[in-house]
Write a protein that binds this DNA or RNA. Structure first.
Lengths: 136, 136
DNA sequence: TCGCTATCGAGACTCTGTCTCGATAGACTG
DNA sequence: CAGTCTATCGAGACAGAGTCTCGATAGCGA
């Protein structure tokens, strides 16, 4: 898999220095980060980068389909650099970790009659391996 | 299926006039409404009801398990009076409608090794029957 | 090089949701 | 029924996430 920067470039997006810094910050983590998590990391590369720039860049990335966004009630939107590969998410109730789950079945067949589904996001809730092992 | 008010009562929640008004407003719609959608409807019953009261009541409802909440990126949290029955959601990209989908398979078996899943929320994206029929 | 256009940065602004705190209302006991 | 205890209420200040505006700047094609 190419880096996020390369994939964004290939999708025709104008890649400015700021967007490159944001994409590198996003790609450099295996986690699912929020926009405000990304700002200090992007500023480590370009100190004068603005908050609005991060939001605008992320919106542009999402529009290309190379970055995914997903929301949990009561939490800021998280961005996922791995959207090029379809996958689901498992959220640990105990520690809050968000784990990528390789997609198995295509779930769009679960759509109700008449509904034309092009994608399905599954979010599993439970306990991750580390938290399930604890007595608490 | 009993009404939401009855189910909340059965779950041991102290049902004040305000909570009853909010529960009736929530139950009286087949849609998936936001807290701020609910406020004017609750005020139609009890005019002096406050915004904080709506949020607090909804949080109490969710805690009983009789009301579900679900989030879409960039949108306020929506509340679902139908949480007593497990179901998924289909979101229309065109008109924004959120449609309940009766649950078919149990999806928790899709969890990765070591992850103990107790529930799975599937959100399908696509076009609802009305929008899919249109050329636009 | 010129000029068009997309992007940028700063910060004000909007919106959603939370918190505080004094007041009030339910529920329980005797 | 009165007293008391506690959960809930209402108002509004507050906090955090995200958007918008607008003048400035940087890419890019001609």
């Amino acid at each position: 898999m190419a880096t996020l920067v390369e994939r964004l470039e290939a999708s025709g997006l104008r890649l400015t220095a700021q967007r490159r810094a944001i994409a590198e910050a996003l790609d450099g983590t295996d986690r699912h980060v929020t926009a405000d998590d990304l700002l200090p990391q992007a500023r480590a590369r370009i100190p004068e980068i603005g908050r609005a720039t991060v939001y605008k860049a992320l919106a542009a990335f999402v529009a290309t389909g190379q970055v995914g966004e997903f929301a949990l009630p009561g939490e800021p939107v998280r961005y996922d650099p791995n959207a090029g590969v379809a996958h689901h998410h498992a959220v640990c109730d105990a520690c809050g970790a968000v784990i990528d789950v390789p997609i198995g079945d295509d779930l769009t067949h679960l759509a109700p009659p008449g509904f034309v589904a092009h994608s399905g996001d599954l979010v599993l809730h439970g306990r991750c391996a580390a938290c399930a092992g604890q007595t608490s």
